[in-house]
Amino acid sequence: MTPVSKWAPACLVLLRTLIGWHFLYEGYFKLIQPAWSAAGAPLPPWSAAGFLRAASGPLAGAFHRMAEPPWISIVDVAIPVALAVIGVWLMLGLFTQWAAAGALLLLLTFYVAAVPTTGEPELRSEGAYLIVNKTLIEAGAVLVVLLSRTGRIAGLDRLLSKRAPIARESGAAA
């Protein structure tokens, strides 16, 4: 009996799609700002400056420098575009390995900039975290996606690949 459920490949694709949507929407929402909420409240233009200035940890100095000109104007465009592109690729299963690697890099960067060290609930956060927060968990999920080569289970990568999809290979092995 195989230790992995036959649903595992489908679940891995689902996981990739969920993470993809999260990245895509985070990027999209930042890109459309300034915007208006459905209730009619104006939302100011998005900037990473606040997050970067609040950065802590060993790389804090580098993050703080990125919060200032001329870097911030690049960061404010690059981050949302990267999020949206990675999101689309993950959802479509296109360039999946590159997308997953990029997602992992971004998530680890976000995590390192703000490692939860107090273990107490913080402002604008819905839980209490010590060392492990949802960003790190999402990074772990991306690592699973990265190592599972899910683009070959389902995704446009299958069109690009000359090799047979993993599902059929594993099916043949069973």
Partner: peptide, 14 residues
């Protein structure tokens, strides 16, 4: 208070 309903934000400044 201002009432609202579920819908995404719309692009645009002032």
């Amino acid at each position: 208070a201002v009432t609202s309903y579920f819908r995404g934000p719309v692009k645009g400044g002032p």
